[in-house]
């Protein structure tokens, strides 16, 4: 755990240094750029709350990917599951008329169901037809994307709009603000706590992790590996779906074209740098959210294109992941040397 934190911090710092080098080569002032980045993401009240709101889909899709990867299934379908969850919440928000206290939970439920169904489809293909979920979930992403585009272009199209989008959902389904903070943040924090409890304190989390590390051992140990596979797919799909639902209910309050496109691979990226840990996913989710939020400020202050952040994110992933492996090798070597000395002495 301490080794993880150390390699993480070192990796992020190294990535920032590489980023500064790239900026300097382009003729920008890296210190001014990073200062602008921090100022607009963490050190201003509006930026700080916006960073937390932006972190909601990042952390939730990250949790989805982390739990899936740690438990075995290579679920790369977060983008599609997010879209289906958002679609579920939109449908309920448009056509069900109830007071807020009932409608909000119902919308959340619909988003969980939407994501779980889409992931469940991939699980069904795997269990019944022996099709690998790795490519299936990827292809389902594209299919979900076009399906949602069709839904908002034809059946649910808002005639008063110029680009494909639905009408706004019923006001009763809007998440209330809480002192400038979007309430969707609360749902995210709750999801993180529940996931952490399940994965590191619960029995099912233990079984899942064991299956992820050695499925044969888990099977011999008495785990129902196949049933667990389906469960993990459903749970991770629901998490991604929740991300989509919260984005609709807390953000634009309608399904607009391109929703979730920016978050497509971010969840997987976060899970990868966090090495599938829950707390790591939460922290890296916040970091990436701060980067994305501060990017706009950086562009305002120093004219560095905000797209620079996408490069920086990928560099962070590469450096942290590679750094973890090399650092582990260094630690192993030191430990061996120490043991050798002890046995000689």
């Amino acid at each position: 755990m301490r080794k993880q934190a150390l390699s993480g911090i070192l990796g992020v710092l190294a990535a920032f240094a590489i980023g500064a080098l790239v900026l300097a080569l382009q003729g920008f002032n890296p210190f001014a750029a990073y200062a602008g980045l921090l100022q607009y993401s963490l050190f201003s009240a509006s930026g700080f709350t916006a960073t937390w709101t932006r972190a909601v889909p990042l952390v939730l899709t990250g949790l989805s990917a982390s739990i899936a990867f740690a438990s075995g299934p290579v679920n790369l379908g977060q983008p599609g599951q997010l879209i289906m969850g958002a679609l579920g919440a939109t449908l309920v928000g448009l056509f069900v008329h109830l007071p807020s206290a009932l409608l909000i939970p119902l919308c959340i439920l619909a988003s969980l169901l939407g994501g779980a169904l889409w992931a469940g489809l991939a699980a069904l293909f795997k269990r019944a037809l022996a099709m690998d979920e790795f490519i299936v979930t990827l292809m389902l992403n594209f299919i979900a994307d076009y399906f949602a585009l069709w839904v908002i272009t034809y059946p649910l199209f808002d005639p008063s709009a110029t680009s494909p989008m639905t009408r706004p959902i019923s006001i009763a389904a809007w998440l209330p603000g809480l002192g400038g903070v979007n309430t969707s943040v609360l749902f995210m924090v709750l999801a993180v706590i529940v996931c952490w409890l399940v994965m590191s304190r619960g029995r099912s989390g233990y079984e899942w992790r064991m299956t992820g590390q050695n499925s044969l051992f888990a099977r011999i140990g008495g785990c129902k590996v196949d049933a667990n596979y389906v469960r993990v797919m459903l749970v991770t799909g629901a998490l991604a779906g929740l991300a989509g639902g919260l984005m609709i209910m807390g953000g634009p309050h309608r399904f607009v074209k391109g929703l979730g496109a920016n978050y497509a691979w971010d969840g997987i990226m976060i899970a990868v740098v966090a090495n599938n840990g829950i707390s790591g996913t939460f922290l890296y989710g916040l970091l990436f959210s701060a980067l994305q939020q501060g990017a706009i400020g950086m562009e305002l202050v120093t004219a560095v294109p905000s797209e620079f952040i996408e490069v920086l994110q990928a560099v962070i992933v590469l450096v942290v992941v590679a750094g973890r492996v090399s650092l582990n090798m260094v630690f192993d070597r030191l430990a061996t040397r120490r043991k050798l000395k002890e046995s000689v002495g």
Binding site: M269, E307, F308, A314, L318, V321, V325
Partner: peptide, 29 residues
């Protein structure tokens, strides 16, 4: 990364794909 530093090939691939999207949009701009 994958051959010399023995980073996981799958993770390297994912990171490279992300890097490609980020780099090309950045350079486009």
């Amino acid at each position: 990364f994958a051959v010399r530093l023995h980073t996981d090939e799958f993770l390297t691939g994912i990171a490279l794909n992300l890097f490609a999207v980020g780099l090309t949009t950045f350079l486009l701009r």
